[in-house]
Design a protein around this nucleic acid. Structure first.
Length: 109
DNA sequence: TGCTTGACATAAT
DNA sequence: CATTATGCCAAGC
């Protein structure tokens, strides 16, 4: 199985209205630490793949700006359409929208 | 075939 | 969470 396939599977598992970071996806995909490949996998991902790639953001909960097109805007729109709220800095409050599947990553203060 | 770049993360400063 | 440096895998040239 390609590493990409695992990544896609994990991304597909992200609940609607929730977001996950590249690092988290990488960890869940078994690519612990290889967050870069997650982003690259999504980059190579076709638009019609049905994968909710827009639910994947960087560590700051912000939509990463890529070299190509205005897909970043699209990603924001898609997330907002799912109920995800962006603050004035264009970032997501991970404390509320972070996809918690791993208690290890959650920090209940 | 080999080097550079890329939707990032983490540790150190 | 600021910046800088390093690591990882795959794709492009």
């Amino acid at each position: 199985m390609s590493r990409y396939a695992v990544i896609y599977r994990v991304v597909s598992r992200i609940p609607r209205g929730r977001v996950a970071t590249y690092g988290q996806v990488a960890e869940l995909a078994g690519l612990d630490g290889h967050a870069r490949q997650v982003g690259y996998a999504l980059h190579a991902l076709p638009s019609a793949s049905g994968i909710p790639w827009h639910r994947v953001v960087n560590s700051f909960g912000e939509v990463s700006k890529r070299s190509d097109s205005d897909s970043d805007e699209l990603q924001v729109e898609l997330l907002r359409a799912e109920g995800v709220v962006f603050d004035t800095a264009g970032r997501i409050d991970l404390r509320r929208f972070r996809w918690r599947v791993r208690a290890k990553l959650t920090r209940p203060t």
